[in-house]
Design a protein around this nucleic acid. Structure first.
Lengths: 141, 141
DNA sequence: GTATTTGTATCAAGAAAGGTTACAAAGTAG
DNA sequence: CTACTTTGTAACCTTTCTTGATACAAATAC
């Protein structure tokens, strides 16, 4: 399976929007920077819109802009908006319930999964889009 | 077959081995508990063997046993032994280097990726195979 | 009305994981 | 030495996910 880079692309997209303020940005333009197809961008924008992170407009002079200030959007929100996945997956088939290990390992792993996810969420909550811009601007001064 | 469940299966395998002490366990037997094919188990055991977590023997009465005591094997080591993947992937194609965002976002995301991975590693380092057994035994008393 | 842009639907290509069969190599027992 | 057992791999198939691409209806501006 191809690796999931939706979070990386979503951060890229939102960083572009953050730098453009109230101006509407076209998916075609963003696609040029992310180096992909405009439909890929629009699909991601759809998810970000569902999460109330962006606002879109159809029609001529339409496009997308942030729904909130960059300082009010954490990377954790972005992660949750586009990543349905967990850090690791559970067993593809349920383990053998007649084995004491098989019977109980799933519950353990499921709890562990949640614990790790919380840990990742906490880390991501430390950064906002504003921080991303700050770091990137520094990088090319 | 959705996401990567190698870590989940590896923990399951090692828990089985941990409960059997010095005894050699056959891949066929483990496969019965994990509910998969013996070759899938042997593939994982190969990775765990490369990481010096288990020792295998071919031939009659062969099989696999832990290379160390359960208390000396952390979940972090297991994770690193079987997961080549990161929590999130970077851009599939390199972003447009003519765009200030495209030019600098990769470095930022790469650092973030490492930071998150460290965070996950730290969390997993808190648990050993011994802890897993303790929790599982409790679960079915 | 015409041009533009989003929002979707649909399809194809490629990658990764898991499952399966097959078999050589290594080891044990007698 | 012979027969048997088990690991270690290779090869192949199927399923599933992600990305990329084309197409077109709906919405909006002038």
């Amino acid at each position: 399976m191809a690796a999931n880079s939706q979070f990386a692309m979503a951060v890229h997209i939102l960083t572009m929007l953050a730098r453009s303020g109230e101006e509407n940005i076209k998916s075609e333009y963003i696609a040029g920077s992310v180096n992909t197809n405009a439909v890929v961008i629009r699909r991601l924008l759809g998810q970000l819109s569902n999460a109330n992170l962006v606002v879109s407009q159809t029609g001529a002079f339409g496009g997308t802009r942030l729904a909130r200030q960059p300082v009010e959007i954490s990377l954790c929100e972005i992660y949750k908006a586009v990543c349905c996945g967990e850090v690791f997956a559970l067993h593809p088939k349920s383990p053998n319930q007649d084995c004491p290990v098989g019977k109980n390992i799933e519950a353990f792993l499921c709890n562990l999964q949640k614990e790790i996810d919380n840990s990742v969420g906490e880390k991501l909550r430390q950064y906002t889009l504003h921080d991303v811009i700050a770091k990137i601007e520094l990088a090319y001064v």
